[in-house]
């Protein structure tokens, strides 16, 4: 049923009409979304979309190329600062500043890719982690970038279009997210993507087959950093204010967790993972206002724990969800999806 008879079947973007239909339906849903929900959820969607962009980029690196990065908050920061500084100090228009900043991030990605040629596993993790920590220190040191006191973002306009509400920004973000997601999927189906996958599966074997390791490993880092840079530039406009302390190690760890929970080597998984974890990140603080459960937790705190620390329950729940997903489904959400699909395909057997 799934047999491929022709090379083009392997590289085509949409494998069947059904997928085209659902993709179209999804786009329509995204376009109508702001009209049916409260403005707050548009903000949440924006936040999710930004994480989706980073995570897709990071998945290209972690899931497809088999490298690891605990320093993506660094690229994210470069994108954010680059965009804001180019716009407010050099008065670049947004549509130029954003890709320019992302290219700077990509350049840093390329540089970080160089040590990655020799490192793997925990060694690479520490190297990238060091990068993430250092870059915010350096940014904080430079007064031109606002130092530790941070920077305010300028007004956002694209040509005649003035984006000042969440809904305006939502359309910009969603367009970019869809484009970047499709681009990532496309990239995977090309020669470059296959080279990435070959490196992931066995880098030495890939090299003997003629894959240029130097080029493709650094390219993977650069592409991944580019995605993070774009996302960072957009994030600055969600917050309208940036300072170095926002881009913490915790953020990098969260990005990595999103990739893995979503499912390594799957764009759909990345989207799902980023959405799930960022939603939890924003919404778990409301856990105490769930009827009954909240009261019960309060009583529990009163007698065994402390009321002042009660909000920390959200961390426990978050941690539990991470652990449970990974325990029962090592492939992440993508794995759950595959299993459900298989189940229905073979139903009732």
């Amino acid at each position: 049923m799934d047999m491929k008879r022709h090379y083009y079947e392997d590289v085509q973007l949409f494998t069947s009409g059904v997928i085209v239909f659902w993709f179209g339906a999804f786009i329509v849903f995204l376009a109508l979304f702001p009209f049916v929900v409260k403005n707050y959820y548009v903000y949440v969607a924006n936040y999710m979309a930004i994480n989706v962009i980073v995570v897709i980029g990071l998945n290209l690196l972690v899931g497809y190329t088999g490298q690891i990065s605990l320093g993506h908050a660094g690229f994210f920061a470069i994108g954010a600062y680059g965009t804001v500084v180019l716009m407010s100090k050099a008065s670049f228009p947004f549509i130029v500043a954003l890709p320019a900043a992302a290219l700077v991030a990509a350049l840093f990605g390329f540089l970080l890719g160089l040590p990655a040629l020799r490192l793997e596993g925990p060694y690479l993790a520490i190297a990238t982690l060091g990068f993430g920590l250092t870059i915010t220190q350096i940014i904080g040191r430079i007064e031109f970038f606002g130092g530790r006191q941070g920077l305010h973002t300028p007004e956002l306009t694209i040509g005649p279009w003035h984006l000042d509400t969440d809904i305006d920004f939502y359309y910009l973000l969603i367009t970019l997210t869809v484009l970047l997601a499709v681009a990532a999927r496309n990239l995977i189906k090309t020669r470059v993507g296959r080279a990435f996958i070959a490196i992931r599966d066995a880098d030495i074997a890939a090299e003997t087959m003629g894959v240029n390791l130097v080029m493709y490993k650094t390219l993977a880092f650069a592409v991944s950093a580019f995605y993070a840079g774009i996302a960072g530039g957009l994030y600055a406009f969600v917050l309208r204010f940036i300072e170095p302390e926002i881009f913490t190690l915790l953020m990098s760890i969260m990005f990595l967790a999103m990739v893995i929970v979503g499912g390594l080597g799957s764009i759909m998984g990345s989207i799902a993972g980023a959405c799930l974890l960022s939603w939890m990140d924003l919404q778990l603080r409301n856990i105490l206002s769930i009827p009954y459960v909240g009261l019960w937790l309060e009583a529990l705190s009163q007698s065994y724990f402390s009321i002042t620390g009660i909000s920390n329950i959200q961390y426990i729940v978050f941690g539990l969800i991470l652990v449970l997903i990974m325990l029962f489904e090592p492939l992440g959400i993508f794995g759950i999806w595959i299993r459900t699909k298989k189940y229905w395909k073979t139903w009732p057997f």
């Binding site: 903000y43 969600v238 917050l239 924003l282 603080r285």
Partner: peptide, 21 residues
């Protein structure tokens, strides 16, 4: 009162949720 964990993104989320909700 809501917990933002000193994370501006969460502050923004909470403020919007309360203000618009």
């Amino acid at each position: 009162m809501f917990d933002d964990a000193y994370n501006p993104a969460k502050t923004m989320a909470g403020v919007k949720e309360l203000q618009e909700g």
